[in-house]
Nucleic acid binder design. Structure first.
Lengths: 198, 198
DNA sequence: TGTACATCAGTGAACGCGCGTTCACTGATGTAC
DNA sequence: TGTACATCAGTGAACGCGCGTTCACTGATGTAC
């Protein structure tokens, strides 16, 4: 049994992921350096390659956690707004999305910025995490538009998510059109309430 | 008069910009290499630095052209749809935006991807190009919502643009949720027609 | 027109640095007997 | 329990490469007289 060894290995993975997360949070994914991480985690550079295939795999691990936390926040918003109208629930989710993106902007951006190695092979958990987000949007949409076919509903879900994502993205990016958070909320409410008028 | 010299210099600038544009179009802004460009333009690496301060300035020049072409396409759509309803005009513009992004995806992405040197100093032409885009959206919005204050209208313009941008962005990015172009059009029409209901 | 000189675009080898990844080695841990 | 041996996480110097930028030099163009 390599139990003890496995444990140490797992600990190192955790330490590396935490360190990477902290560095991405502070300076963005493009400023990650293997040597910095080794120093942070108290190991040698080479040890990183015992725990992960390469730096990309490490960043993917961080992204996995980020997706999990984002999903949890959105789910909490779904739960908290359970009694409300479909529109209110969509707005609550979107604001949770905004709040997460705003509070974790560089980690959130890393979800989209990471350049994958050529062959567009998106890992399974990535698609799954997105499907999870979409599924929460699907419920209110089904309630609002029961006459739509499943394909139409799927398209509507995508359109709603994309719109909110666009508003959050450009709202937070002050290069393009940075805007006070309160205005981002107003845009979300404006768009969603109109999009969901019966 | 350094006329002849100036002319050569301007020619070199043009050649470099064209070469950079071609390379970004083919492989994305992150794969630009000074040596490749020099070879393409038939000059030495050092000559690049006579024509431009640095590689970032060269990419900015390409982005300037891209913005211009994008603006022209959108304006053509505005002109072509001049007689139609406000909604129809907004959809026409958005489809022009989609078509441009789709046909020039890497150049279009370079507009947003280029990492600026720290101090968020966005060049003036950049803001101006965006203002130009926004101004075309502002007309139908003013027509649709004359009762809104100018601030509300500005927010509505931003919200519309951001929504369409989000739909186009995620629609074209097959990593996230790549979708056939026809579906992107449907999402745009769906969102805009609902957002502009009176 | 001709000659000497100044300027400056153009050259491309070399600089300098960053950085992911490897690899020969070490030392702790576990196993066999 | 004690000894010899095997394994493998961990080490960090070194590899290897990429790449933006510089700089001493050249040669064409333009100017002065």
């Amino acid at each position: 049994m390599a139990t003890k060894a496995e444990q140490r290995r797992a600990e190192l993975r955790d330490k590396l992921v935490s360190a990477a997360e902290a560095r991405i949070r502070a300076a963005g994914v493009s400023s990650l350096r293997a040597r910095d991480l080794a120093k942070d985690a108290g190991c040698a550079v080479g040890a990183i390659y015992n725990a992960f295939d390469d730096m990309t795999a490490l960043v993917m691990a961080v992204n996995g956690l980020t997706f999990q936390r984002l999903g949890a926040d959105v789910e909490a918003a779904v739960a908290a707004s359970a009694g409300g109208s479909a529109t209110a629930r969509l707005i609550a989710m979107s604001e949770a999305y905004l709040d997460f993106a705003s509070a974790n902007s560089r980690l959130w951006r890393a979800l989209f910025d990471l350049e994958l190695p050529e062959d567009g092979a998106v890992p399974e958990w990535y698609r799954a995490a997105l499907a999870r987000l979409f599924s929460h949007i699907a419920d209110p949409v089904a309630e609002l538009f029961p006459e739509q076919s499943p394909e139409e509903q799927a398209l509507t879900v995508r359109a709603l998510f994309s719109s909110v994502h666009g508003i959050v993205l450009l709202g937070l990016e002050n290069r393009i059109s940075g805007v006070p958070p309160q205005d981002i909320r107003r845009m979300i409410a404006l768009v969603l309430s109109r999009l969901t008028v019966r």
